[in-house]
Structures are given as structure tokens and as C-alpha cells.
């Protein structure tokens, strides 16, 4: 028996594409965060280079939550978003899953805004890996926004 959430959601190519786009961005974000995590645990700190301030960001007090590097939270976040997007892509259409996915993209985007602000206003240095993550989180947020917009349009159409 289909529940109301599922029955009122038509399966559309656009929704599928948005799920897939979020999954791809999340996968790239996972790779980015996984690289930073591996670098934190397995390599000595990046030497300070004339060309960029990555070392400043990645070794600053803001790069850790207690003993855990932020990159670990990045890995967890992107994996959760990836699996949720794949679940949405492969399951029957569900408003609840789409809303959960959108909620995740809001969290990712919000955290990215906070982290980029810390880099710009407090640390005064930028890390290109963090910037990549922020760009990916922004793309995910835009796709998520599009997803819920289509959802509300579909609801208006239903009523």
C-alpha cells in the first residue's frame, strides 16, 4: 500500500536528475573531505608555501572539534547526503525523503558559509580544498532548492 507521500509524487525525469546531481556533488565532496582526513592522519603537516594559505587553515584551531578534524565531519556529511540521494533516486518518489535531502543540503550550505566566513574574517587565509567543498555544498543546496520547489509545484497541481 502506498502512503500519501508516495502516491502524490509523480516520478519525473527532472527529479531523478536532481537526485543524481546531488549524489554526484556529494561523491566529489566525499573525495575532497576524505583526502583532507587522510592527509591529517597519515602525513606531516603541509609545509607553509609562498603560494597559498592552506596550511594556515588546516592547522588552525578552527580545523578541529575537540580531537576530531572537521574533515571527518565532512566525510560523514557527504556520505549521508550521497546515500540519501541514491536512496531517493532508487526508491518510489517520496516527499519525506526529498525534504530530508533538502534539509541536509541546507546544513551543508550553512556550515560552508560559516567556515568560509571564519577563513575570511578570522584566519585571513583560504584553503582551496575547503573552497571546493563550499562550492559543492552550494551546488547541492541549489539542486535541493530546485527539488523542493518542484515538489511544491506538484502539490499545487495535485490540489
Amino acid at each position: 500500500m502506498n502512503n500519501l507521500n508516495q502516491s502524490s509524487m509523480p516520478r519525473s525525469p527532472l527529479r531523478n536528475r536532481l537526485h543524481l546531481a546531488i549524489a554526484i556533488f556529494a561523491f566529489l565532496g566525499f573525495a575532497d573531505s576524505a583526502y583532507l582526513t587522510a592527509d591529517h592522519y597519515f602525513a606531516l603537516p603541509l609545509p607553509c608555501s609562498l603560494l597559498h594559505g592552506c596550511d594556515v587553515v588546516l592547522t588552525s584551531a578552527y580545523s578541529m572539534v575537540g580531537p576530531i578534524p572537521l574533515a571527518v565531519f565532512g566525510v560523514a556529511f557527504y556520505l549521508l547526503a550521497l546515500f540519501t540521494a541514491i536512496h531517493a533516486y532508487t526508491s518510489a518518489p517520496s516527499r519525506r525523503i526529498d525534504r530530508a535531502l533538502f534539509g541536509l543540503t541546507v546544513i551543508g550550505f550553512g556550515m560552508s558559509v560559516i567556515f568560509e566566513s571564519i577563513q575570511a574574517l578570522i584566519i585571513h587565509a583560504f584553503c582551496q580544498y575547503c573552497a571546493l567543498s563550499a562550492v559543492l555544498a552550494t551546488f547541492m543546496f541549489i539542486a535541493g532548492l530546485w527539488l523542493v520547489r518542484k515538489q511544491s509545484e506538484a502539490r499545487q497541481f495535485d490540489t
Binding site: 592527509d39 602525513a43 556520505l79
Partner: peptide, 20 residues
Amino acid sequence: VGFAVLITALTITATVLSKG
């Protein structure tokens, strides 16, 4: 997807380790 995630994680770890 699971396989891609696993391979990516292993490749990254191997890359960082060989860099070290």
C-alpha cells in the same frame, strides 16, 4: 556507489601514504 566510495577512499589513502 558503495564500490566507488570504497575505491576512492583506498586510492586517497594510498596517495597520501606514498606522498609521506
